[in-house]
Structure formats: structure tokens, C-alpha cells
Design a protein around this nucleic acid. Structure first.
Lengths: 197, 197, 197, 197
DNA sequence: GATGAATGAGTGTTCATTCAT
DNA sequence: CATGAATGAACACTCATTCAT
């Protein structure tokens, strides 16, 4: 009979967090290909072997890091989500929250971008990620029903209302562009003009 | 003792071309990280050492392959470029030519996408690439001057008039979307609505 | 905080027994090289660390498992040992008991074979093992004295009266041979013909 | 057009030979489990990576070393093979040649023994090995036909006419036995007594 | 120009063992 | 007594690159 008290941590949360941050930092700084397990371990201040206590293998480490961020983003952009607002305002709020998140966690966002273009991306269940973004997706669908948004293929819509965020936040693509509130507002105007009926 | 015949000059080009295609094929099929020099060599039917005759190192091989494709794209989308047409028509022509190119050379396009998100990307001189797209860029600038296109930051404009092409052509992003002429036309309408004044 | 109850003493033996069986099973199934301490622990349903309570290290675990089986074999083949029988009958009884043991505990026997050919084998005190087989050894010596058995070097004798059992019981060596009573009898005839004067 | 002269060795025979000897030496001295690729490489005076030029992987290195020795043994024991001699003499010749080989190449022989009891053993095509021993096998079969040798299962015969060689040559099994010509002769007498009708 | 051989440095992963709890 | 967490050292293997030919 063994009794665990609260202070007895079976796994070390501090290590797990350090590993999460180290993974993101290293991938962002050196790219996916160059981010070896031993380098990540060194960055996190732990032994390479320790990584395998927390994760089955490298793949699982990278994937779970990605999913955790995506989940985080999904919850942040839906904070104080008010379905009763006009559709344009809802989307604008999400748009701003997204840029705010990126401004606050540029490293997290950059990691998801790197991941999305890595070979690991194909190992993630797309549906699991999409469910974190259901509410805003449903708003778009409602907008089509109410004849406020153009009735076109959904992928085409997202290519104009969400995908430009990626482009605009990509330091590489937009080297000299500061996404301050004014520019975010301007960009949203273009996005809305694109999709509105 | 090695004897050279005159006809061996021909071989050079064949090897170089084979190397170009092999690089693209392997990167597309297995990703950047898994595309080793020896595997590319094997795919091209040459020795790994031979690669170093044509290219300084792996980096330079991948970069020059990228630049070559980008140059190719630049020249294709400007074929029969007619500056006298209305700005909307010019952009629409470029838009269609781009989708045509992607349909004809999905592997070339995919390579550029993979490359753009690899660490190698930062080693490319952005200006060198941009110059291949100067004519269409100038059209956008003229559109702003003539108050046909919104007078906003240039990066914001491109995020809506060019970047969606990438999203829409990405099989991963748009799994069930067939970019036929109708869908291309529709998407262009959104793009134009976004940027037009 | 750990609380011990009286009945936990029982657990020790259960664990030790589980460890014994797990060691044999894993070594037989995956070979010595692939039998890691953690895998043995998992097979036994205990923690790797627990093994080090019962055994100084991996080496000692494997060796003690070997010695235990050898001791077991020694006692089994000498059950109902009747020194007054004719020497041929005594040897034949031992011969049959050995084959019976192997038939009943193929896993135990296989472990000893694997062990005998592993580097661990050199760490075992040969004399300690031999003493478990003293009675039958003495019968051989008596046979020589009584001029029933050839007076040759003892190792040569055992190479014909005992060693063939190993060969005949080795599924790898004799893939299609079923050691039924008839074949055991036949083989003993050859063994006896070899050593008898 | 490339012309190779005789002195141009594509692969280095010296390295290959060193690798062969190093593999045998290390396996004999430390056992199969402890014989890592890097240790073998160090013993051979080459880089671990070089091993993979000559062999697909560790497995293939160990297996091919085994097969080479077995082939060697097969050819040696059949040197000056005279089918017209009496069967007993033929077998006795083979028996002596085998012991001579072991005396001359104890390391080679020990390697095959270690290999036969390693997990790698199951990866070898048994038939490929057996064919090197066909001539002597056929003599046994002829002996049975001619009613000179007992008509019993073949595996039982080999357990008495061949397998004891292994036991008698095993320094571990027969620590104090010197297999000089007299002892070899004696042992053969037992072997022949076992199998002869 | 072209090559197969060669390699030091690195990869992801597992190991036997220790230790705080 | 029993454990999960932790790790340095080792594993088999691949890498980008060089070099003699």
C-alpha cells in the first residue's frame, strides 16, 4: 500500500514545460531538419534519454507540441466569444485575437507554421485540430446562409479570411511590415471585402 | 587513365537536368530532411561525388534548384504580357497563368513551397527572386496610382492577390478542392474584391 | 508513506518466482542480447529497480537463474536413483529422465543452452554445477573400474553419453526429429555402444 | 571512358580481410552480444561507417563471416576426398581433418560455435550451409544402404558421429582435455562404435 | 569530368543502473 | 520493500563531404 502526497510529483512538470519550450525554440531557430533529439534535450537541460520518458519518440514529441499549441490558439481566439454580434464583428474579433496571440507568442505561432510544412504534418489527424476551430467555422457557415458572405467553396473562403493572417505574420514574407492595430484593421477590411456578398 | 570524347559534352547537360529532376522528386516525396546527397545522387543515376562538380555543396544544390524554378515561374506568368489591358484583366491573366503552371508542374511548385518553409530559404537573396516578378508588381503599383487598387501597404495587397494561390494549390490545405477554371475564376473575384478600391 | 501488512511477505516469493519465469521466457523468446533488465521487469510485472533488490545486477540475475535450473535438473535425474541396478540400466534411466525433463520444461532447458553459449557462462563456477551430477558421474567411474565401460578420458565419455542429448533436444539442430520413446531408446543404444567396452 | 588497371582496387581487399579477422576476434573474446559495430571497426582499424560499404548491416556482416568459415570448413574436410575407401576410413579421415582444422583455426571454429547459438543463426538458410557438407553426408547414407551403419534417423547418427567433435573441441566443455592424435583416434573409435551396425 | 571508397560527426533510440520518495 | 524518474554511455546506422584514381 503506497500513499502519494501532493508534493510527490510522479513526473516533473517543470521538465515537461522546459521540454515544450526547448522544442519550440530549437525548431524555430534551426528548423525541423536540424532539430535533433540531443539538441532539444541540451536546450531543455535534460538528458536525451529523459525525453523518452515523456514521449514515445521524436515524432510524438513534435506532434504533441504542435497539437498543444493549436489547442491553445483555438481556445484563445474563442475567449468571450459572442454569437449574438453581427458576423462581421465576430470575425473581426477573431482576426484581432489571432494577431494578438501571434504578437504575444510569435515563437508558438512560428512553430505551428514550421510544423505545417514539415513531413510530420501528415501524421496529425486533421479533424482533431479542426474541432478547436469549430465555433468560428460555424459563424462563416451562418454568414453564407444569411446571404452576408459569398456562397462559394469553403476552402476558397478560408484562403481569404484566414490564410492571409499566416502570410502577414510571416516575418519572412513580410519583412518590413509592422502589424500594428491600424494595419490589422486595414487587412481585415480587405479580407471582409473579399468574402462579403 | 581517362579518355574524353567530344560527345561527352552532351552528357553534362543530361546529368545536370537529371540532377535537377532528381532533387525535386526526392524532396517532394520524402521531404527536405530525408533528402540526403547520396539519395539524390542515386535518384539521378550519378555518384554523390559528381554532385560536387556541379554544386559547391548540398545547400547550393537546393538553392539553385529553387531559384531556377522561381525564374521559370516568373517567365511563364509574364508570357504575352500586355501592359495595355485593363489592370483587372492583367492580374486575372497572371492569376490564371499561375494556376496553369501549378497544374502543369505540380512537382516544381511543391518544391518551392517545401523550400520556402525550410531553413535554406533564409539563405536566398529575396531581391533576386522578386525581380522575376517585377512586371506584375509594377501593374499593382500603377493600379494604386490610378486609384483602382486600394492604397495600402504592399505586403497586405500581396497577401490577398498572390498568397491565396499558395493556399488554394496546397493539396494539404485544400484536400477536397479541385481548382478547375470555374473555381479559379471565383477565387479571383474574391481576390479582386479584396484589393480593388 | 508506505504501510506494510503481514501478508506482504508472501509477495516476495511471488515476485521472485515471476522474475525467474520472466527471465527464462524473455531470454528464450528474444535471446540474451535483446533481454534487457527493463524488459524482464515488465514481463515479470515489476519495476526494473525492484530487480536490484533481489539481484546485485543483471549478470547475477542471469547466472542465478541458470544455477537454479541446473540444480533442478540434477535433482530430477537422480530421483529414485538405484545404485544396485546394472550400470547400463542406471544410465538408461538417467537418459530417459533427462529427455523427460526436457519434454516437460523445454523452456528451462533452452535457457541453460542459451546460457551455456553466452559470455556469462564463463562467470559460473563449473565445480558448483558439476556437484549436482556427481551420482551419475560416479556410476560411469564404477563402470570403468568394472571394465564395463571403456577406460578413456572422462570428457570423451561424456561427449558420447551426455552431449548427444543436447544435440538431439535442440530444435534447431534436429528440426524434423521427434524425440519419442522409441527414438530416445534408439539413441541410447548408440550412446551405450559408443562407451561400452 | 574509364580504364581500370590491375593495381586499381575498387574495394580494398586488405580492409575486407581485416574486417573478417576483427569480427571473429572480437566475437570470440567478448561474445556476440558485446560485439558492437564500432568495436569491430576499431579492432579492424577502420571507421564504423566503412563497414557499411562492405556489408548492408551488422547482421549481414556476422552472417557472411559465418558462411565464409563454414564454406571454408566444408572444402577443407573434403580435400583429397577418396570415395573408394572403406566407409570407416573415409569418416575417420574427415574426423581427423575436422580436428586438424580446429587445431589450426581455433578462432574460426569458435566463431561458428558462438554463431550457431546466437539469434542470428535463425537468419541463415540451413540448406546453403548443408550443401558444403554433402559429400560426407552421402557417405553416411551409403553406409546405411550397405548395412555397415545403423539404419536410424539421420539426426541421431550425426549426434554421434559429428556433434561430439563440437563438444570435444569446446575448451569450455573439456577444459583439461588435449585433443592430440591419440585422443582423436580414441574418440573416433567411440563414434564409430556408436553408429556402426 | 567522374567516381567508389572512406570517414568523423552526427542521428534517434535503448541500455544497466541509481536514487529520491 | 518497492518504485517511476532520471541519466551517461552505448547502440546501429546515415550524413555531407573529400580524395585518390
Amino acid at each position: 500500500m503506497i500513499v502519494y502526497f501532493d508534493f510527490m510529483r510522479i513526473k516533473d512538470d517543470i521538465k515537461q514545460e522546459a521540454l515544450f519550450e526547448a522544442t519550440i525554440k530549437l525548431v524555430n531557430e534551426t528548423g525541423f531538419a536540424a532539430s535533433s533529439v540531443s539538441k532539444i534535450a541540451k536546450q531543455a537541460g535534460i538528458s536525451p534519454a529523459t525525453i523518452y520518458i515523456y514521449h514515445k519518440n521524436k515524432e510524438e514529441l513534435l506532434i504533441s507540441t504542435y497539437i498543444q499549441i493549436k489547442k491553445n490558439i483555438g481556445s484563445v481566439i474563442h475567449e468571450n466569444f459572442d454569437d449574438s454580434l453581427p458576423i462581421r464583428d465576430i470575425l473581426k474579433n477573431v482576426w484581432f485575437k489571432m494577431f494578438n496571440y501571434i504578437a504575444k507568442h510569435p515563437d508558438y505561432f512560428q512553430y505551428t507554421e514550421q510544423f505545417s510544412n514539415s513531413p510530420y504534418q501528415s501524421l496529425v489527424d486533421k479533424r482533431e485540430i479542426e474541432k478547436y476551430f469549430d465555433p468560428v467555422i460555424n459563424v462563416l457557415l451562418r454568414g453564407i446562409e444569411q446571404k452576408i458572405i459569398k456562397n462559394v467553396n469553403f476552402d476558397i473562403l478560408t484562403a481569404f479570411i484566414f490564410y492571409p493572417i499566416v502570410a502577414l505574420s510571416n516575418a519572412r514574407v513580410c519583412q518590413d511590415l509592422d502589424m500594428n492595430d491600424e494595419n490589422i484593421e486595414t487587412a481585415f477590411t480587405l479580407a471582409w471585402d473579399a468574402i462579403k456578398l
